[in-house]
Structure formats: C-alpha cells, structure tokens
Amino acid sequence: MFPNLKNPVFTDIDDLNEMARQIRRDIINMLLISKSGHSGGPLGLADIFTALYFNKLNLLPEDPYNAERDFVFLSIGHVAPVWYATLSRRGYFPLDELTTLRKVNGRLQGHPAPLKTHGLPGVEIASGALGQGLSIAVGTALGLRLSGEPNHVYCICGDGELAEGQIWEAAMTAHHHKTDNLTVIVDRNHCQIDNRTENVQVLEPLADKWKAFGFEVFEIDGHNMKEVLETIDAAKKVKGKPSCIIAYTKMGRGVSFMEDNYKWHGVPPNDEQGKIALSELPATKYGDFVDYYKEK
C-alpha cells in the first residue's frame, strides 16, 4: 500500500528488545547530560516506541513528512526523551543531537516543540500541556479520511493525563465520527507526579470507560514485544470505531530503583544513580551515542 515507505527494520523480537534497551540507555545518557527532565515515563515506553518505529509504522526518516506516513501524536509531551531517542535511532536526525536535550537554541525542547518553529524531524505539533493530543489525532484522522487517505493515526496518552476533560471530549468526537483510522495507546503505569494514579484520583475501571466511549479496547503487557506488535496490528484492523490499547507498563522500567516508583516521574538521575542505571541496562550491539563517564 505504501511502496515508498520503509519498515520493518527488525522483525526479530530479540533485535527489537535490544533496540528498546539501547533506547533506555540513550534516555539515561540524555538525562545525565541535560540534568533536567523526566526519567520514569520515557523508560516505561521504550518497548512501545521501538515496536512502532522499528516495525509497525509506515514512515520514511529521510522524508519525515511524506504524505503516506502514519501520524504519531505524543499527548504526554513530558516523555519526549523516549521519542527523541527513538527518532534519532531510526535516522530522523543525528545521534549527536541527543546531547542537546533541553539546551538553549536546541531542537530537543523539554516538551516537543512545533515543526514550524523548531523543525525537529518527526514531530508534528507541540505537546506538553496535557490532554490535548487526542483531539489533534481525531482531527487529523478526520482530515485524512475526508481526503480518502489510508494513513493510520496513533496517539500516545498517559494514564494520569486521562483526568483532563478534553480527552473524553475527544473520545466522544472519535466515537461519533467512527474514526477507525485512529488508535489511542494509553501508558497505564499507575504513576503520576504526585502519587500512584489511584491515590490522586481513581481511574479504574479504565477499560470499561474506553469501551463505554465507543472504543474497541485491547489490554496488553506493554513490555512484551510480541504482544505489543500483535496488538498494534489488531487495533489497525478494527473497523467502524476507534481503537484503544491500554498498555500496562512500569514507570522506570529496566532500572531497579526507578521501577514502579512515581517519585521518578519528573527527575533525572544524578551521576551515581546514572552509573547504576546503565549497569542494569547492559550495553548493546548498537552502541551508545556518548560515553558520559569517560567524557566527564
């Protein structure tokens, strides 16, 4: 259907898992350099981003805005490090640029900055203020359908973010217009900045909520690469209604002292913590973009 576009890069589960681990190492290194940013969410999403960008999405890194591309919207802009690392690893921009996270005059802004003003390849629109991504995704899905285009639209939402009313406004619009070219992926890690989600505001029964709003719902282990891949395929096949993948993940996945700990929502590791983190995420065949401790 998309003769011009490339993917998958990897079909082997082991290759994908290794890339996800490399992206986790990249996230740690980026945060060590920037000394500012979010650790937990990005680490938790590395498997899903790897599955999308290295296997499932229709995309062309050298022509990032090719008309046939699938659209990705990151409603939770604060997990930008996992997106930047993935885009860079996939060839959208040089790995060296990962050293510029959150730095002045840089394209890797703390939260994804708009294409027109900052020009980071792969980013469609700004995000950061929570709750806004799904409306944009629905609008794009409607526009593509009106033009008769087969592109699929993905929107990645956090779980804490679902308290924002606009998410449910958008869900109603998606249902009303039967946008089956849209898949929402909810990063269900049960953590948000203040506490565990159910302590801040009860979110369950979450799958029932999405079902009630007219979505075909899939519940998966967001760290099981095979399950992630299969479910992305299944969601795309849904007809007549939008789909929602609730991906159960662990905030800080891969780093023992961060895992499932909401206190790692919004802070970077210090040098000592970074060293431990990298030791728990063994080096991969893809290689690091920096040797942080050597350069220090």
């Binding site: 629109i125 806004q132 944009i136 629905v138 609008g139 409607l142 526009g143 593509l144 606009q166 619009t173």
Partner: peptide, 16 residues
Amino acid sequence: AEQDMMGTAAGLALAG
C-alpha cells in the same frame, strides 16, 4: 466541547 473543537481543528490543519 470548545477545547476539543480547537484541537480537532489543529489536527485537520495538519491533514492539509
């Protein structure tokens, strides 16, 4: 749903 309306409009603009 005016908040959703503005976001949906932005998404439509992205689709050309």
